[in-house]
């Protein structure tokens, strides 16, 4: 008998022999403090939480300003910048040719290549933003893969303010319907550790800096 049959047979036998554990309140309504159901409250919550997590938040009126902000953020960086193929990012580059120029050289490099370890900054779009926890969520299929958001020391995320949600429920619903992704991640601030004497240090293995360029207005 193989291990699978052996384990399952045993579990099934015990399942019959021992009564189920009582579980009186399986369904859960709201258990958490959460933002009110309007855009303003969600933005307030998000701003407060994201900044407390040491995220850098740039709220920009319109796409041109957002593009300018990104150019400014990456202008002084050593090494190349990797940008994900994403409709919003495409629009920002059409808006500002200087940004497209800056990014042109790096676009070619495949993030599966070994030189990718030298990448100074990854730019990706977000699936959604979670106001309740100040998190950015993304999935591998729509975020330029798995490495782009974690290997470079600096991660820039671009999102529209319409992508701001309360918490994870709507995103989960979307994930379940989409069959294209292999990895989905909830990112709450730049990488951190407190393994040495509980002292908080940023930039453990993931990005040291996490910036969100939030496009508001039209």
């Amino acid at each position: 008998m193989n291990a699978r049959e052996q384990i399952l047979k045993r579990l099934r036998r015990c399942r019959q022999a021992v009564p189920d554990m009582p579980c009186p309140s399986k369904e859960f309504g709201p258990l958490f403090f959460h933002p009110e159901d309007n855009a303003e409250s969600r933005l307030d919550w998000f701003r407060e939480k994201f900044i407390a997590l040491r995220g850098e938040l740039y709220e920009e009126q319109g796409e041109r300003q957002a593009a300018q902000r990104i150019l400014e953020l990456i202008s002084g960086l050593p090494g190349f910048v990797q940008v994900q193929k994403h409709p919003l990012l495409e629009r920002l580059q059409s808006e500002l040719p200087a940004l497209r120029e800056r990014l042109a050289g790096s676009r070619a490099l495949d993030c599966a290549s070994p030189e990718y370890a030298q990448c100074a900054c990854g730019i990706s779009g977000a699936d959604s933003l979670l106001a309740q926890s100040g998190s950015i969520v993304l999935r591998s299929s729509a975020a330029g893969g798995r490495r782009l958001s974690v290997l470079p020391p600096f991660h820039i995320v671009v999102a529209a303010s319409s992508q701001l949600n309360g918490f994870v429920a709507p995103w989960f619903a979307g994930l379940q319907q989409d069959n294209s992704w292999s990895l989905a991640s909830i990112i709450s601030g730049p990488s951190r550790t407190a393994d040495i004497e509980k002292i908080l240090v940023f930039g453990a293995h993931g990005p040291k800096r996490l910036a969100l360029v939030l496009v508001t207005g039209s």
């Binding site: 939480k49 997590l53 495949d110 993030c111 599966a112 926890s133 998190s135 591998s140 299929s141 330029g144 893969g145 798995r146 490495r147 974690v150 994930l175 294209s180 992704w181 292999s182 990895l183 989905a184 991640s185 909830i186 990112i187 709450s188 601030g189 730049p190 990488s191 951190r192 407190a194 993931g206």
Partner: peptide, 23 residues
């Protein structure tokens, strides 16, 4: 750890899919 959420919460359902650049 006394955090609201840890920094990375990751859901993985399999190896790299076709159309994904890495994994």
């Amino acid at each position: 750890t006394g955090q609201q959420l840890t920094c990375y919460n990751t859901i993985i359902r399999g190896p790299k899919r076709s159309g994904e650049p890495d994994g």
